[in-house]
Amino acid sequence: MTRIIKIDKSIHEDNKICADRIRKQARENTCFLINIMGSPGCGKTSLIIELIKTMRNRSVLVIEGDVDSDVDARKIISEGFDSVQIQTGGACHLDAYMLEQSLMPDYFKKYDFILIENIGNLICTSGHDIGADLNIVLLSVPEGDDKPMKYPAIFKDSDAVIITKHDYIQLSDFSIEMFRNNLLSLKENAELFITSSKQKTGFEEICSFIITTLKA
């Protein structure tokens, strides 16, 4: 005789508990975590550097997630900012457990913001809560305006979308209007920003959005 056992459990439940624990500890110390996602080479590290420069008097730590190497952490440090590196050793996304292990007890007291650069990936990074207060996805102009329809989950789940490398727009057939329409069909109230790290444009708007949204 067989019987049915009801489970009704999301597989992300345990990770969510860990993520909520991180969020709670950070909030108690008025520190905010921001998860930055996007493809390899879309300009995450360059955007982070320009964003910290725009944040001026705020203390910021950057946690760099990569499969291997500490190239990005060294790049951030060479700009005069604090950074630590997580190497996932093959895993294609960060999860709350990996982040919790990399957090030292004084980080939440010492920093106003912790920016987390996730692994370069538009698929696996979505749907994994890492305890961030804001989840932001980047899409560079050379990647094309059709990406929200090809990778809907990450665009739908993010709190803001940033188009990077706007300086390439003249060389490309990327249509901001098409991208915006694709994005709005997935998420009616999507927040969209346009930046160029090379030309240093669009960062004040992102900064105000972060500070207003988080009341930081």
């Binding site: 019987r3 049915i4 009704d8 459990k9 999301s10 992300h12 979505s126 809907p152 739908k156 997935l186």
Partner: peptide
């Protein structure tokens, strides 16, 4: 008029049949 797309990336274990 314009439509929206509804869906998510949830992953749920519903139940299991056992002996």
């Amino acid at each position: 008029n314009r439509c929206s797309i509804i869906g998510d990336s949830s992953f749920r274990i519903v139940d299991m049949e056992v002996i």
